[in-house]
Design a protein around this nucleic acid. Structure first.
Lengths: 359, 359
DNA sequence: TTGTAGGCGTTATCAT
DNA sequence: ATGATAACGCCTACAA
């Protein structure tokens, strides 16, 4: 371990192998057609011998581009997207890509600054998570050689023909949730969501309606709460607030449901808090299921039953999408799975006969 | 917005300003002593006119270094360090630095690979969070011009004289927690921690002991649970497990405490789950306070009272430490604050007279 | 105070 | 199949 490790350059390798720098360069870039059998071998040995590692910076200066990935996310602390960011970072580094992450905090100024910087250094791979109002599409729209993958967004949200997307199969998710409750014996189920401002919210609710019909659920309700901004909200805590408020609405329903499906887990946790506040016990009085399967579900008590967002698979699909192969679909839809914890049980007599519950 | 935006180089600026490239370079590097009044002005205008932005890659190739920051963290999903990562990223980009993040998952192989890559591109600023067994010290130890800041670690954990640290004032934190409980009227308080494998665990417990003494608390207990590995644990869920197990121990204490201080919030949430499982109500039977103030505290119910880790200030101190000013202390210690939620109340008769509690 | 020239390590073009 | 050579955009002696 030297104090100032002297760089091994392509020329050093060339000298050691008795070939020219260009040949080593060709070797590094896998242009084997332009190399003789013997030269290839000697270069290979010299590289191993000297432990040569090409200087990415020099290459970047020369080519004007880098294989690094720009990752745009509202906030890493966000319970769902945080796990996704981790998975993407791991998948990317497995594929040899560096990742530049930007927490936009939903500020398009921050996002634009970030993209300006990255455009400067030649980044051509973009991943955007939950991009309700991401500007990256507009920004990079003109450039031909840029790959953009949007996670948790509909392609209609952008006007980019080249865009690729990765999404959860929301219909399947709702089918799973309602099916699980139906299996337990529930037939009065409510759905709680906040404003339908994104594709996933719309589609997931639609999925609930379809599922309810499919399982022949007797009665169902949709409770919609509107968003109220928080002063600072790096973790989607406004959804917890929304859930808390929704709990009151659910409790006030003329025919109180025995189970509730929440748009996502944060709303579900809010519901749990709200129900507790008004004396409704989960799950003995009412069952509860969310979507995403954030880690908090496991840490909370009772543990929240949820429909798991397949984070690792989404990351894999995303990185795969970055190097487009034309025979693959531009929109990948992944299947969720059910994680049963403690908030879903069979409806009890107390929850079925609402008189026992009091007003 | 052109399709292939032609780069504005230092030469373009020089031409526009009627000076040479070196002068522009000197301007960019703030070597104003080497510039005439008039030249400086014309360069400034030309830069604004052409919207010139220096090519970081070229500079990097030439100088062999970059001002980007390497950020090493076990996992961004980790409830405490996730918030810290966000704060650091924001503070860094405010200061104009890019951030390369590495989720080591506590694998030194991953960390070493990452540092190798970054050493290649000339990164000389390192931040490491909760580095129980971080190798970065060893790795970069030899290099003179590298700044390393360790957050949530004692300088004794490394053998690097040049290291700078940022830490919470654990003693003050415990003083605050115990003081709060004492103010409420508690005088039988237990402390729950997992194995004392880090500086913060040792120091925080010491702080508890000092505080208990200082407030003249009649009786206190230390409950220590050992770590058990989880198959996969990106979010410190093993601490929740530890808390769950500890709850049983606390319940079995011969003189059951009326309040518990947990080493951190994840353990506290585990305690909450454990208490609920054995029929002990929080806070009416027992009060509970944690440390860190992770977002989950707000989302859980009841909301967990906690000692807040001043994340934004820590980020600021960390970035400040990166450009060492010799008159500042090498070890910064920041003060926490108390966030009262629902898990701490006055001890009730039911919790005070233990007979009412059953066995 | 300002300009000129050389080179950082790589890729790409054009010879051979 | 292989090699010389010229950039990429910037910094930095050193010269003027």
């Amino acid at each position: 371990m030297d104090l100032a490790p002297p760089r091994v350059t392509i020329q050093d390798v060339a000298r050691a192998a008795g070939v020219s720098g260009s040949s080593v360069s060709n070797y590094m870039n896998r242009h084997f057609e332009r190399l003789g059998e013997e030269a290839r071998l000697r270069i290979k040995e010299a590289i191993a011998e000297l432990n040569f590692r090409p200087n990415r910076v020099a290459r970047q200066l020369k080519t004007g581009r880098t294989d690094a990935i720009a990752l745009i996310v509202p906030s890493v602390v966000n319970p769902y997207s945080g796990e996704l960011v981790l998975a993407i970072e791991q998948e990317a580094s497995r594929a040899g890509y560096g990742v530049h992450m930007c927490n936009t905090m939903r500020s398009s100024a921050i996002e634009t600054d970030f993209l300006d910087r990255l455009a400067d250094i030649g980044v051509r791979r973009l991943i955007t998570i939950s991009p309700m109002n991401s500007t990256c599409g507009v920004y990079y729209a003109a450039r031909e050689d840029v790959s953009i993958v949007a996670i948790d967004a509909s392609r209609d949200d952008f006007k980019l023909p080249g865009l690729r997307t990765v999404n959860l199969d929301h219909r399947a998710a709702m089918d799973m949730a309602v099916g699980h409750l139906h299996d337990l014996g529930h037939d009065r189920i409510a759905y709680v969501t906040d404003s339908l401002i994104t594709h996933s919210r719309v589609d997931r609710m639609k999925g609930f309606e379809l599922a309810v019909e499919r399982y022949g659920i007797r009665a169902s309700d949709i409770v919609m709460v509107e968003n109220r901004e928080r002063v600072v909200d790096i973790a989607d805590l406004h959804m917890v607030d929304a859930g808390r408020r929704a709990a009151i609405d659910v409790a006030a329903l003329s025919l109180r449901p025995t189970a509730v499906v929440a748009f996502n887990d944060m709303i579900a946790h809010g519901l749990m808090a709200g129900f507790r506040a008004v004396g409704i016990a989960v799950p003995s009085d009412i069952s509860l299921i969310g979507v995403d399967d954030i880690w908090m579900n496991e840490a909370a008590s009772p543990g929240l039953t949820s429909i798991r967002h397949p984070v690792a698979e989404m990351a894999k699909a995303t990185i795969g999408h970055l190097s487009p192969s034309m025979d693959e679909p531009a929109d990948k839809v992944l299947l969720p799975s059910l994680v049963v914890r403690q908030t879903t049980t069979q409806p009890t007599s107390s929850s079925t006969s609402r008189d026992a519950q009091g007003k």
